[in-house]
Amino acid sequence: MAPFLSTYFLILISAQLVKSSGVFELKVHSFTTSSSSSVCEQSRECKGFFRVCLNYTQNVFSYRLACSEDTGLPGTFSTDQSSISTSAPIAVPFNLKWLGTVSVIIEAWNTESSNDQSTVCDEFFYGDDCSDFCRPRDDPFGHFNCDAAGNRICLPEWKGEYCAEPICRSSCSEKHGYCVAPGQCECFYGWQGPRCDECVPYPGCMHGTCQQPWQCMCDEGWRGLLCDKGQNI
């Protein structure tokens, strides 16, 4: 028999952390709910539990930093408050190395006793512990969709871990060029041409070529720094 949701609530508490690591602990002293589960009341085989997650936010990005293991409590919340007040604190180990905001999310659940331990994640969260975050986007911070497992799938003409790197024109030299938008080819300093595979010769080079930027290798019959003097001069 699959788990069902009896009560769900969120409490958001923000804090600034810099290069922090440790264990966040939360002690629940009491819990009340205006709703009740007729299935729990009839079977008396329900188990309540709390789940605490830490969400890390920096700029526009939000990540599920860490979650506690489900803390089981016998009986239902409405009829067995003593099991809540005497339970151990809920511990959430964390490791954070950047300045940002961490929000504490507390969930209270009732489930029917069952061998089926499947988890239903919130929107945009994936994995057995719902700790993998993936939200489709198409903006300067990324261009991707998410598959059923929460993996990022890049939109056409984008690549990279966050699908923020444009794929250049197919003939663009990756060694001497780059692009800021799909299908473009911008040359590094010292290179030119539609494929960025032509070196820029020394300024003023008259009758010469180059193999590397700023060279002036004289054609046959010419000499001088700028290859502007004939051999018979």
Rank of each mutant, 00 (worst) to 15 (best):
S113N: 08
F9K: 05
L5K: 09
P194T: 15
K47E: 13
L73P: 00
V23K: 08
C163F: 01
A164Y: 04
G230A: 07
E157H: 10
P136E: 12
S68K: 05
C227E: 03
H29D: 15
Y162E: 12
N95Q: 07
A2L: 13
D122W: 09
S173V: 05
S20H: 08
E174S: 15
P136L: 08
T33A: 07
K19V: 10
A148E: 14
W222E: 02
C216G: 02
G75T: 08
C146M: 10
Q58R: 15
S30G: 10
V60T: 10
R169M: 11
L54A: 03
P156F: 06
T209V: 06
I153M: 09
R44Y: 03
W222L: 00
D219F: 07
P213Y: 03
L225Q: 11
S21G: 10
D116L: 06
T76Q: 12
T33E: 04
G72D: 09
C199E: 08
A181G: 09
W109F: 11
P156M: 04
D116W: 03
Y8S: 13
S20M: 06
S43L: 12
S170T: 10
C187G: 06
D138T: 10
Q58S: 09
S14N: 09
F9C: 08
E69G: 04
F50Q: 04
S36H: 14
T76G: 10
T32Q: 12
F188H: 14
I233R: 12
C227P: 01
F133G: 02
S34W: 08
R51F: 02
E123P: 03
C134F: 01
A66T: 02
V52G: 00
C168Y: 07
Y202S: 06
I13L: 14
D147Y: 01
P93V: 05
E161R: 09
F77Q: 02
L12I: 14
C130N: 02
W191H: 04
T76D: 12
T119Q: 10
S78L: 13
S30N: 09
L73D: 02
S103Q: 15
E165I: 11
C227N: 05
L26P: 00
